[in-house]
Design a binder for these strands. Structure first.
Lengths: 285, 285
DNA sequence: CGCATCGATACCCTGGCGGTATCGATCGGC
DNA sequence: GCCGATCGATACCGCCAGGGTATCGATGCG
């Protein structure tokens, strides 16, 4: 199996149409038909059912489509990383979500800069759900993720920091004086619906809560008595006067991890991980 | 970049010798030299420094070697999985370590067999450190891992079960009557050194403890008063009369997870995961 | 200084890949 | 029910990539 054959097959499997796939690949249709047929012969498996009117994936074809996409992404990532490694001054790309506490990122970058032979670090601000893709496609070398919201599937990772979650309430609210809360108590407040965050696709889940896109909007709304929210502790450094936070005991703790592709060989990534682990040492002496 | 070129480069990078690499690839040396040179041109990166006496990897070459090995493994896995998917009766390969509690595996397999459309499950007994490789190379489809001993890097996983660890002591031992212990107390017993388990490479770590290879050996030694050990709770169902277990409070809990390659598309794997999650439901109602 | 080793180069040949032209099957419209 | 449009497969052709052999040039060793 060759990369070109795989790229051809994936194009056909995605278009389910040889003509359009050929157009996308910028080749003529006959070589494409032949290439897919040859791939099927090599693998000893029928990947597509063709009629002159419709093309459908077989079970084996669906498997190869999934595996093939991963392989093509890995190849593209490898090419990018090799080229990156030839740069005389090494760089690493660190993917962070917009919400990630700015202070701790700055702290990490400062500590890393002090390392001997530190590479330049490019910050890549992105949406939460993009981070894995960026790592897998080689557009980023290392990322900060927050469990249980992000998935670290397919990545190596190291735990940096574990924190509880807190409810953010208007300062005058009756619950604001409590030493702690249970999440059910917060969710159940009818006059203060939970704020809603965008889905990966950009839409919002069903519900009555206000739609927010960032923490500033959120805190504004809460201060106005229009919403409430449960957020990680570190999101509320420098709290406004008119807001109060109360720990929510049964909310799952938020774990910050530093994650990288398992086959990463960049010295800069290894150094960054080491510095990060030292900074937020959770194992302790 | 094509698979063949990558295979050629990896061979040279591993042998650090064009002649031997060519022999391994069963081609002549000149085409190999040309292929590697062409790959370097395509990537715009020098991968190898060559003298007529020595071949060494550049930084970029080291990166491509690591990425390339992962890609080649992924390609081999894809080929195997596609062929597997063409079988009329689907099969899945479940990799389990020899030490994994036999009862729970049997329970999982029984429950899965009852599913409509259940595939045949092949059990692949293996050493702990092989499991990831087997999954990545496509020789297994799903595995049971034990954290924190095994790494789930590069895999998707679901937590099945969390259990504490217990110290196994000879029944007459003074500590055997205690309701619980700290790991320091167990490790510090001079007359009962901790048993040693083999490393991934088959050797044993330094130490004074007895060398063991399986639980039967271990329990025998403990009963004879020659060793002690800290093991997961489930490892000691059906305990011998002459042994006692005592919970070790500060030993890290052992988490059993079911893990699979992130791009897995096999229905059988999805079903198996669902059944496993239902069986050991940890979230609970 | 001569020889052995090893990667690069020169040259040749075959096969695979891509292109154009065309076939054959299928579906929809009249 | 027939005709035409659509779409994948096939036939045929030209070209270059990839593999082979022979040989060169550099390097290290006795």
């Amino acid at each position: 199996m060759e990369i070109r054959e795989l790229r051809y097959f994936v194009a056909v499997a995605e278009e389910l149409h040889f003509g359009r796939a050929a157009q996308r690949l910028e080749i003529a249709q006959p070589p494409l038909s032949r290439a897919v047929a040859r791939l099927e012969r090599k693998l000893g498996a029928v990947l597509l059912e063709r009629t002159s009117r419709k093309v459908t994936l077989t079970e084996a074809g669906a498997v190869l489509l999934a595996e093939g996409r991963a392989i093509l992404a890995a190849v593209a990532a490898a090419e990018r990383r090799v080229q990156q490694a030839t740069r005389t001054l090494p760089r690493v790309v660190l993917a962070v979500k917009a919400g990630t506490a700015g202070a701790s990122v700055a702290e990490l970058l400062d500590a890393y800069r002090a390392e001997p032979g530190a590479a330049a670090v490019d910050l890549l601000l992105c949406e939460a759900h993009q981070q894995q893709d960026l790592l897998r496609k080689g557009q980023a070398d290392v990322a900060l993720l927050h469990l249980p919201f992000d998935s670290r599937a397919g990545l190596d990772s190291e735990v940096l920091h574990i924190e509880r979650q807190v409810a953010v309430l208007p300062a005058p609210h009756p619950l604001a004086g409590r030493p702690w809360l249970r999440s059910a108590e917060v969710v159940a407040l009818p006059e203060l619906p939970m704020a809603r965050w965008p889905d990966p696709d950009g839409g919002y889940p069903e519900g009555s809560g206000a739609k927010v896109r960032n923490l500033t909007q959120l805190f504004q709304l809460i201060a106005l008595g229009r919403a409430t929210a449960i957020v990680p502790e570190s999101a509320v450094t420098d709290l406004r006067r008119d807001l109060t936070v109360v720990p929510v005991l049964d909310a799952p703790p938020v774990t910050t991890v530093i994650a990288w592709p398992p086959q990463s060989r960049l010295r800069a990534v290894a150094d960054l991980i080491r510095v990060a682990a030292r900074l937020w040492d959770t194992t302790g002496p």
